[in-house]
Each structure stands twice: as structure tokens, then as C-alpha cells.
Amino acid sequence: MQIPVGVSARHIHLSQEHLTALFGAGAQLHPKKALSQPGQYASEETVDLQGPRGKIERVRVLGPVRPETQLEVSKTDLLKLGMQAPVRESGQIEGSPGLTIIGPQGQVQLEKGVIVAKRHVHFSPDEARRYGVRDGQFLTLRTSGERGLIFEHVSARVSPKYKLDFHLDTDEANAAGVQTGDEAEVIELDGLHEQEHFHGNEIVRVNSSPKIEKPTEFVR
């Protein structure tokens, strides 16, 4: 099973309240480029981020607006900002940290919403049925090439709003030497090997060594 790769750079989703605070009364997002997921787009608008020990400028706002503001960054971005954040599924922002968001008309002190997005694959319901994948299932994917890697614990996310795409962040993509438009191969579904994709040495081996009991005393 081959899945197209979509590399996700740092970006932010804004609530309407925060969009207004940052860009002024009556502010709306202006689409700049359509994204792989239906109805999603990169907007013309950008914001600056101020962390405890660093700043990142011109972070793209993605649309449309959401009920809650959420910032998705890489581990490398967190180092620059001087902060830590959890690896989470999109929308799971409880207990995550905040920072200062700076716009052209104002700024927002975000109390929560900074996460490192957990790598995942989007499926439409038809695609999920075709590939035998269910929502919430974990997949293992392999990329090819000079720096090919195996990515474990990849979440399957199924919705009528989605289109087939493997999302990973820039740190992960750079480590594997992949870019948007490349493909990754699914080699495992919830721990069950897809044998037709295996090539010889991925046999699960059971440790048959006898158990050695710890001695109760030393022989002198």
C-alpha cells in the first residue's frame, strides 16, 4: 500500500476571536494556496510567535478558522522558542503550553494550544474501506531512498472531510530525506504484518534462550 507524503511545516489555526484580536475588527482569512485536505488552505495572513527565549516570524495561518487556536511546530522550532510541548493529535490541546502570538493589529497571550503534531495518515471512508484501515488504528510506514526510514505509531484518521495523505513534520521529513509528493509504503497494520510487502528478513523471532535464575550467593 503506497501513501502520498505531505510535509507539514510550522503553522497556526486561529479561532475567530483571536483572528479579530490579531488582525482587527471584521478580519477574514484570504486563501493563498489550497492544501491536500479538501477545504483547507494556507492563507495570506501570517503571525509572529514569541516564546520564553526566542521568536519565530511569519508563521502561516491556515484556514478556515477553528473553534480553538492551535499552533503546530516541530521539535526544532521549540528549541528556538525556548519551550517544550507535547506530541499530540490535532485538537488535543488540554495541558499544552501557550505563548504570545503577535499580529499586525494586536497580540494574544495564548494559554494553551502549542503542540508537536503526531504523525498521521488521512483517509476518506472509501479509502479506509479499500485498504482495510479503521479510524484510530496505528500503522507502520517505510520511506525509500538514500535516507529511508521506518515510521512507527502512525495514526490513521478517517473522515468524509479527508483525502489520502501521510502527514509528517519538517524534522521527520528531513531525517528521512522525503518531500511532499513522495510516497511511503504501509508495512504493518496494528502489529499485523502485511506479508506481501515484506522482502526477506522481517521475520518475527522469539527469544528461545533459557531463563537464568539470579544466584542467591557467590561461591568462594
Score class of each variant (00 low, 15 high):
80 K>F: 00
81 L>C: 00
83 M>H: 07
85 A>D: 00
89 E>Q: 12
90 S>T: 09
91 G>K: 09
93 I>T: 12
95 G>S: 06
97 P>F: 01
97 P>L: 01
100 T>A: 03
100 T>N: 01
101 I>Y: 01
101 I>P: 00
101 I>D: 01
102 I>F: 04
102 I>T: 08
107 Q>C: 01
112 K>C: 00
113 G>Y: 01
115 I>F: 02
117 A>N: 03
117 A>L: 08
118 K>I: 05
120 H>F: 08
121 V>T: 11
123 F>L: 12
124 S>Y: 07
125 P>M: 12
126 D>G: 12
128 A>D: 02
131 Y>K: 13
132 G>H: 11
134 R>T: 11
134 R>C: 07
137 Q>M: 14
137 Q>D: 12
138 F>M: 13
141 L>R: 04
145 G>W: 06
148 G>W: 08
149 L>F: 03
150 I>P: 02
153 H>P: 01
155 S>G: 02
156 A>Q: 02
156 A>R: 03
157 R>K: 10
157 R>F: 08
159 S>P: 05
160 P>A: 06
161 K>Q: 09
163 K>G: 08
165 D>R: 14
166 F>E: 03
167 H>C: 11
171 D>S: 13
172 E>P: 05
173 A>W: 05
174 N>F: 04
175 A>E: 10
175 A>W: 06
176 A>K: 10
177 G>P: 06
177 G>W: 04
177 G>I: 13
182 D>L: 13
184 A>I: 14
185 E>H: 11
185 E>C: 13
185 E>L: 15
186 V>D: 00
186 V>Q: 05
187 I>N: 06
188 E>F: 11
190 D>E: 14
191 G>Y: 07
191 G>R: 12
193 H>M: 11
194 E>G: 10
195 Q>E: 08
196 E>F: 13
197 H>M: 11
197 H>Q: 12
200 G>W: 10
200 G>M: 10
202 E>K: 15
